[in-house]
Amino acid sequence: MKERRTPHVVVIMGVAGTGKTTVGPLLADRLGVPYAEGDDFHPPANIEKMSAGTPLTDDDRWPWLDAIGAWADGRAGKGGVVSSSALKRSYRDRLRAAAPEAVFVHLTGDRKLIEDRMSHRQGHFMPTALLDSQFATLQPLGADEAGVAVDVAGSPEEIADRAVEALSRLG
């Protein structure tokens, strides 16, 4: 697939286990922009909480989202890809307030497939026990939000290719 550059910051979003950390760097490579891992913006207390199987509250998430938003704002006009669950509209609104040019790629898929992938990954702090809370919290992109939904069936490379194609239709 031909590499394309984008001046946009793309937030790759979705519930845990959809492949944000795997697909994000592939998408960034295809778009010719840097990638930032959203989990790296979490304060240690958030990681400890999730590792213990406790869902984060909105108050836990605001500083994390603000840090992601600051990174995205710093990439304005230059482009970038950053992962963030961005499960709620209010979270995406917070990211857009910091980086108005941000567009979202919502990785979606069958819950059984996502749970299976989560159960086979190693070295990640998010337990499969939190998947229910993730789906319960999820508010899919609204028709008025700049973004696209991309199914996670297939290989990471296929998913990244579909994301590039879907983004190209946004203009």
Rank of each mutant, 00 (worst) to 15 (best):
I114N: 00
D93S: 15
R92Y: 01
F125I: 11
Q139C: 00
G77H: 08
W64F: 06
D144W: 06
W62Y: 10
P34A: 08
R111Y: 03
D93Y: 12
V33K: 12
R111G: 03
L131E: 00
L26Q: 13
A86T: 06
G19R: 11
F135Q: 11
I68K: 06
A67C: 00
A136C: 00
G69S: 05
D29F: 08
G38D: 04
A45R: 13
G154T: 09
L87H: 05
R111P: 01
R75A: 15
S90A: 12
A72Y: 08
V82I: 14
E101W: 14
K112V: 13
A45K: 11
G69N: 04
V105A: 05
D110I: 11
P100R: 06
E101G: 15
E48P: 03
L56S: 06
L113F: 03
S83A: 15
K20T: 05
V33L: 12
A52R: 14
G142N: 06
H120N: 15
P127N: 13
G77W: 09
R75F: 02
A136D: 13
K112F: 00
A102K: 04
S85C: 08
D73K: 15
A98N: 09
A143M: 05
V148L: 08
D60Y: 05
P156D: 12
F125S: 08
H124K: 10
A86P: 07
V152E: 13
T54Y: 12
D110R: 12
P25D: 08
K78W: 12
T22A: 14
L95R: 04
K112R: 11
F135S: 09
E115N: 09
G123F: 02
A52D: 11
S90W: 00
E145H: 09
M126T: 02
E48F: 05
L56H: 04
A143W: 04
S155G: 08
F135H: 13
V152H: 13
V148T: 07
T54Q: 15
Q122L: 10
L27I: 01
